[in-house]
Design a protein around this nucleic acid. Structure first.
Lengths: 147, 147
DNA sequence: GCAATAAATATAACGTGTTAATTAAAATCC
DNA sequence: GGATTTTAATTAACACGTTATATTTATTGC
């Protein structure tokens, strides 16, 4: 049996933890979870998205996103209005307060990325991205011949 | 600003999701979470570990592990006894029932790994492990010159 | 146009992630 | 050897992950 320390999911998780380790405290100082931050980032990049679109971009499931949006709306970091042409949809926008918070945190995130790039090496980082993208693609089971 | 789709933490997370996607349903059929499975695996490999040791090997925080062990003990998949030489410690062992469940699930996990290895390639998988280990090592901030 | 179906969100329920605080047992230090 | 500090484990509180279910609005079929 393969040894326990050669678990790919655990290694991926540890890598994620290591990468985020010095950044999440900044988020917590502003009362944000990493998931809430992902949503703010997505909205800052493209405003007025519906919930399903946000869930896709942020890799969140709808029940989680519902709670996150309720929370962010309560703190007036985002606003929600029903889409005029389809009342099932809710269009979410980042508020000026939300954008202001984003502007505080974004440079800290950039600094973290710069440090990682410097320590690990730009080329290796690119290679890692390529490998991960390929792994995701090839292992994704929506390409039949499995099960 | 770096585009959102080039988020390293999210890419790592998606890779983990992709790798586990076809395996977690097997766990759920037996009422196990991935974290509970990690604990069973660790105990099957080395029995009678204390909680702190398990937390380390399984990359779990103690509060999560406490709940997991309470759950697994309630289902008699593991047993707990205080360590004789240090009553603060609890030694956890996998029960015969736990081992039996392990023996059912382990081959399914192996099959998943084999499929991934075959689709992604052995060499690339090894390279990915190396890169991830190096990333974790170099980015881990317990090596000073940071903050 | 109206019933049946599909789609977008939201709720419910339970387990985990995370930080802080608590309890109980060693270990340390005088 | 008794007070202080450390350590192992638990509990508390709140947010997220996940599956199943419910609700509301669009769409489809007839």
């Amino acid at each position: 049996m393969r040894r326990f320390n050669r678990s790919l999911p655990m290694t991926l998780m540890k890598a994620r933890d290591a990468v985020m380790k010095e950044f999440t405290p900044h988020l917590r100082e502003h009362g944000l979870s990493t998931q809430q931050w992902r949503v703010l980032r997505a909205l800052e990049e493209d405003n007025a998205l519906d919930a399903t679109e946000i869930a896709g971009r942020c890799a969140l499931l709808m029940p989680s996103l519902t709670r996150i949006l309720q929370n962010l709306e309560g703190r007036e970091l985002v606003s929600r209005v029903p889409a005029k042409d389809d009342l099932r949809r809710t269009l979410v926008s980042i508020t000026p307060e939300g954008r202001q918070l984003f502007d505080i945190i974004a440079p800290l995130q950039e600094a973290r990325y710069d440090l990682i790039t410097q320590r690990f090496g730009y080329g290796k980082l690119e290679l890692l991205y390529e490998l991960l993208d390929e792994l995701i693609d090839k292992v994704d089971d929506d390409q039949a011949d499995e099960e």
